[in-house]
Each structure stands twice: as structure tokens, then as C-alpha cells.
Design a protein around this nucleic acid. Sequence first.
DNA 1: CGATGATCGTACGCATGCTTACCATTTGGC
DNA 2: GCCAAATGGTAAGCATGCGTACGATCATCG
Lengths: 174, 174
Amino acid sequence: MSDAPRKREVNDARRKRDASPVGGEFRIGFLVHDVSRLRQAVFDQAMKPHGVTRAQWWALAQLTRHDPRGGMTQAELARLMELGKVATGAMVMRLEAAGLVSRRADASDRRLNRVFVTNRGSRILERMIAVGRELNGTLLRGLEPDDLDAADRVLTALRSRLRAQLRADGVTGD
Amino acid sequence: MSDAPRKREVNDARRKRDASPVGGEFRIGFLVHDVSRLRQAVFDQAMKPHGVTRAQWWALAQLTRHDPRGGMTQAELARLMELGKVATGAMVMRLEAAGLVSRRADASDRRLNRVFVTNRGSRILERMIAVGRELNGTLLRGLEPDDLDAADRVLTALRSRLRAQLRADGVTGD
DNA sequence: CGATGATCGTACGCATGCTTACCATTTGGC
DNA sequence: GCCAAATGGTAAGCATGCGTACGATCATCG
């Protein structure tokens, strides 16, 4: 790793608390981490009275959105949510334990477990959407649309680069 | 990998797959979640040969940065990293198990556990910084500085709003 | 038709973070 | 001086996600 010292007047986003080697250049990274963590906490808190977490609500949304009646397999759901099989399986298990989905084996292909949203799941999802919409509105209110678009661009770019990086190094393939 | 230059006029960030109630308005939120998750995976993968995860590396950095010699208490570390006591304690435990830090009870206040970075910890941290810097460079290279600033603004705003929201509703106090 | 590989799902263990509960110590008001 | 509150840590349990390994099925090729 022959590393030439990079110029540091690249931008002023790293203005303060930058005396250390790790603090300025990773600002966005850790900012993302913080926001993700806090967002999870806030959403979970807002949705706790309804008994569903944010991740569960999102999974439920994917299920109804792409297959209102058919029954999605876990593998399909995993691809939709861009999660691993294992994480998806655990999520479905929790949803089933909460009575929000049910699983039935497919008749023609016995490897498949088809997941159906229960009536209770649908009802709760409806409320969740309202709660999420309101919360999101609160969070984004007053922010510059241009900034939001720029943030969207940056995050989208980061996501695709991270995916590429992940595929390049670790050939997990999942 | 040919860089996939899809950065043209992405202005219509919420372009497709928006027919559902959950998909457009929560885009940034889930984008943040994805980036955070992927970033964790990529960093961990890059640092795995050195035997340290991203979170551990960050904790190590905080320790050396704010107290090269003195020995920080876990509570101080928790505040620096904006984590709960429990998560911090678990982190320190893993770091200790890896031989990167050591804990000694404070003489004058026996509630305190002072955490010291070992020589091995320092050596590894050095390498980690180089790895992280390079990875971060790869991820951010070529992105518009203006966009990065805007993203920084948005994320910082989100973070403070989320914190406020969290304090408002859940009075955990930790 | 039968071996072989792909696919789906599960089991197990780890990392990270949260909450609630609890113990030990120190500190501060009286 | 003493008891109560604050403070530092730990323990236990849960949610989310990851990786590896494995069993069960299906699909395909020779």
C-alpha cells in the first residue's frame, strides 16, 4: 500500500474535530451509521405500541406489495429485501410468531415455503404505513429538496460501489 | 469492473417502483440502512485479515485519540462513541479477548475499569487506519464535492432530529 | 435411470446494538 | 456519620444481519 498523502482541502465537510487520523475522512461513513442506528431506534419506538419493528414492517410491505395474494417464497423475499437467506428466514419466523404471516409448503415443489400475510398482518401494515409516513415527514420537513436529491445521489452511488466492492473481494455469492 | 457511470441527471431520485405507499417517501431511510449495512460488510471484509472489525477499530481509534496514555473508563468511551453502556462493555470485552486492550481497575474509585490499548492494539490500529483511508477513498472518489456537502448536511440534520425525537418519546436516559 | 449440481430452507455461532434489572461504589444532603 | 441518589459495570434477553454447513428437493446431463 504505497500511499501518497492525499490533499486535504478537498472539501470543507470535514471542518471541525479533525486533529486525528480517523475523524474527518470517515465522517460520512459514521454519519450514515449513526443515522441508521438512530432511525431504527426511533421507528421501533414509534411502532412498538403496534407490536412491530421497522424491519418487520418493511418485510410485510414487500410481501403485500409484490404478491398480494400469491404467496411469496422466502428466497424471493430475500432477493427483494436484498438480505441473506438466513436473515430472511429468521425475519419470517418472527413475523409468523407474531401472527402476521403464515407459511405453507408449496404443493408442486416441496423445497418452497410460501409466505402469506394474514389479515392481522394487513391491518397492522396499514397503520404502520401511516406511522412511518408521518415520522418520515417530520424527519425530512424543511430540508432543501436539492440537498435531498444530492444526498440521494451520494447514497445511491455509495450503495452501488459498496455492492461492487463486496462482490469483488468476497465471493460469497449469496 | 467498469465503474457503472450511472451518475448523469439522476435528479428524479424517486423515479421508478413508486406505485406503492411504501417505496418513495422512505427511500432515503432505507438507502441509509442499506449503505450502513453494506459498509459494515465491506469494511469488515477488508479488515478481516487483520482480525478486527470496523466497530472495534473505531473504538480503538477513540481510545488512542482521546487518551493515549491515561486509560479511559468505559463510560467515557461510551459517551465518545455515543453508545450505551452495555454495548460498550461488550465491545471492550471483545477487544480484550482479542488482546487489543487491557482493563485495570482504578485505584481510587473502584467502580471504574480503565481501558488501555496494548502495543498489539496500537500496531493493528495503524494498519487499520491505512486500510480504512484507502477504502474510503475508493468509495468517495469522483463524487461531487457539493453533493457530499449536501449529503453531510442532510445526514447531520437527520441525526439531530432523530436524537431529539428519541429523547422526546423514549426517556431512557442512558 | 442415475449421478451431479443447483436451489430452498434450516441450524449454529458471531457481531452489534438496545432495554431492563441488578450489584458495587462513591457522593452528597441532612 | 448515614442513608439515598448518582454513577460505573455486568447480566440476561431480544432484534437484526452475516457466514458456514447441511439436509432435502428438483433439474439436468450422460
